[in-house]
Design a binder for these strands. Structure first.
Length: 593
RNA sequence: GGUCCCAUAGCUCAGCUGGAUAGAGCACCGGUUUUCUAAACCGGCGGCCCUUGGUUCGAAUCCAAGUGGGGCUACCA
């Protein structure tokens, strides 16, 4: 592939050697800011010391040299210490001809890097439906998987379902006590919502019991531990662990309800997994690892019989890895699961956990312990940590019902997409099925883009009172532009696909080609930083650029056939890049809207 | 207390790995359609880039301290 920076780099390197005998300088280019003439900029301040020349003088001499030694450089200008270089019209046209028909532009062939990466995401609890926080997790995980594939890696998407534990027993107990045999069918509720309802019920009844105890003069802490409901839930968990048939049966029934519900939400969101893990199968893993660590003196036994590791030398604290009663804690399971995965996939080169930043500390501990145990792959474990979605009132809490429910949000988005589309009245001739498909596409485009355009590391604000926009810096804006291009292409029956001859590019056409040129490096960068936001913001820039071009210049009515044909092909290539970029976000683009 | 993260326009966010006059969208005000989709385009309004020091030819960006906000600091998961 044609690489402009490399071309310039070699020329500048040569110039520095020949003009100033300077061979050790580090040369980097940046894109020329749009208020100046040029494509790439070399900052000459960096070389003033070694050459003992003023920045402007340096710029002129270098510019002059480059102009005469590199035919791809058409012009230069010097502003203060900035040498702005313009590549020739011919250079950009050659580049465009090389890429204009690529349908996989920006996407390397999957597995071309030979690297296999496991990416875990979603990992829900089976005691409540998914909310907006989970939506961010799912969209982020899915998108990062797409981006890593586009960078040539093989990606195994996994979901580790938290299907057991005290929180699950809480829903089960509340259903048993207050449910009167209610089922998703009888209640007319999605299974996950039904189970979630009883999780909230439990919390209500539990809080009431605590209050009653406190009224009797018992301390809050004591009341929380001794409330009958809590004791019953704990007893239920013990029975589950011993395999009590009745408890296990109830557990299976209610979990199945939840899975049916999740399946619907996952399908709507358009996310999927290559391999499912269930905590009910993995929660005992890691106990042998503890023994192994004890042998190696990585862990030590405390007086009360629990086993711990001292990480204070690494800036962390002491951490229990096995309780005094011999049962495992969270980190025990994660140790076991990680080791199991590397055994199961011997070629695995990286293990990524998509989990919120509230668990930053947990993963630091986990990776440090793996390292201490001598697993060399520990450094290939990565916590893809993302910020919380916050409401104006603060954090979402499932127990207290202060959450934005995923299914409700998706339905609201769908309704808005339908209403907006009908208002605009541009869907004549669409069948009912096509309309449904369009509403899904647009509503999901709006939601996904809204979430993914924000840097994953940062927390984000969501105000349920202000609906997600369909205008401006949004998914539908990009989808619309794609549909608009497709509309033009449908009308261009006489489009020729041969290479573009030497026409003169106007400023904005050149900008679009340059923007397309950037796509590949943006995909690489997004892969390095695990950041769909880079892709989102890139596609937006290209879209804005195209819309300005579309508004200022006629395509179909252009009289010069070469120019017309070029504009058609430029449009086609732009649509392709937008489509490929959006695909990396898990967003589909329509042919018409 | 310890530790980690965050702070940019009224609001939501870009600007990460130092560079030229700090950018978008929304909101608000105004304009563009006999022409390829107006979910669009153009213009206006709007900034002590939290504060103070430091490094540098150059700092929103790097370093230090402070202020404000949030997370974590369980023999819960």
């Amino acid at each position: 592939m044609i690489n402009a920076e490399k071309l310039l780099y070699e020329s500048v390197q040569k110039a520095l050697v020949e003009l100033y005998s300077l061979s050790t300088a580090t040369i980097t280019f940046q894109k020329t800011r749009k208020e100046f003439e040029g494509d790439f900029t070399l900052v000459t301040f960096a070389f003033t010391k070694e050459t003992k020349k003023a920045p402007e003088q340096l710029g002129k001499e270098l510019g002059e040299f480059l102009l005469h030694h590199n035919p791809a450089i058409a012009a230069y200008s010097v502003v203060k210490g900035f040498l702005n270089l313009s590549l020739s019209n011919a250079f950009w046209l050659t580049y465009f001809n090389a890429i204009k028909d690529l349908t996989d532009i920006g996407h390397q062939k999957e597995n071309s890097s030979g690297k296999t990466i496991m990416l875990e995401y979603s990992s829900p609890n089976t005691n409540k439906p998914l909310h907006l926080g989970h939506v961010r997790n799912n969209l982020l995980g899915f998108s990062v998987a797409q981006i890593l594939k586009a960078n040539g890696h093989t990606v195994v998407k996994t979901n580790l379902v938290n299907d057991r534990g005290i929180h699950i027993c809480k829903s089960m107990l509340a259903w048993q006590k207050f449910g009167h045999g209610e089922t998703p069918q009888s209640a007319g509720l999605k299974g996950d919502h039904l189970v979630g309802k009883y999780y909230v019920e439990f919390d209500k009844a539990y809080k009431k019991q605590i209050e009653e105890h406190i009224a009797k003069g018992i301390s809050k802490e004591e009341a929380e531990k001794t409330a009958p409901l809590m004791l019953e839930a704990q007893e239920m968990l013990r029975q589950w662990e011993t395999g009590n048939t009745e408890v296990v049966k109830l557990w299976k029934t209610m979990n199945d309800w939840v899975y049916e519900g999740f399946a619907v939400t996952y399908k709507t969101l358009g996310v999927d997994f290559d391999k499912m893990y269930y905590e009910s199968n993995t929660y005992l893993l890691g106990k042998e690892v503890v023994q192994e660590g004890l042998h190696k003196n990585v862990f030590f036994k405390k007086e009360n019989g629990s086993i711990a590791i001292d990480l204070s030398a690494d800036g962390l604290d002491e951490k229990i890895v096995l309780r005094s009663d011999g049962t495992s804690v969270y980190v025990t399971q994660d140790l076991g699961t990680a080791i199991e995965r590397f055994k199961e996939f011997p070629g695995l080169e990286q293990l990524i956990y998509t989990v919120g930043n509230e668990q930053d500390y947990h993963f630091k501990v986990l990776f440090k312990i793996l390292e201490k145990l001598g697993y060399t792959w520990a450094k290939e474990c990565y916590h893809l940590s993302y910020g919380m979605v916050e409401l104006p009132e603060g954090k979402m809490k499932s127990r207290e019902g202060t959450v934005v429910d995923a299914d409700e949000l998706l339905q609201e988005m769908y309704d808005t997409a339908e209403a907006t589309t009908k208002d605009l009245g541009k869907v004549e001739g669409f069948t009912e099925a096509e309309l449904d498909e369009l509403y899904r596409l647009v509503s999901l485009g709006a939601l996904k883009y809204f979430i993914l355009k924000v840097d994953p590391k940062k927390k984000m604000m969501f105000d349920p009172k202000e609906s997600i926009d369909f205008n401006g810096h949004t998914g539908p804006f990009i989808q619309y532009t794609h549909a608009r291009i497709k509309s033009v292409l449908r009308k261009a029956s006489d489009m020729v696909h041969s290479d573009i001859p030497g026409i003169e590019l106007n400023a904005i056409e050149k900008e679009i080609i340059k923007s397309i040129y950037d796509f590949e490096s943006v995909v690489t960068e997004a892969g390095q930083f695990y950041s769909p936001a880079l892709i989102a913001n890139y596609t937006y820039e290209l879209t804005k650029l195209y819309n300005r071009f579309y508004h200022e210049f006629s395509i179909l009515k252009e009289e010069n056939n070469d120019v017309k044909n070029f504009r058609l092909q430029l449009s086609k290539a732009s649509a392709q890049v937008l489509s490929n970029g959006m695909a990396l976000l898990g967003i589909k683009v329509p042919e018409r809207m």
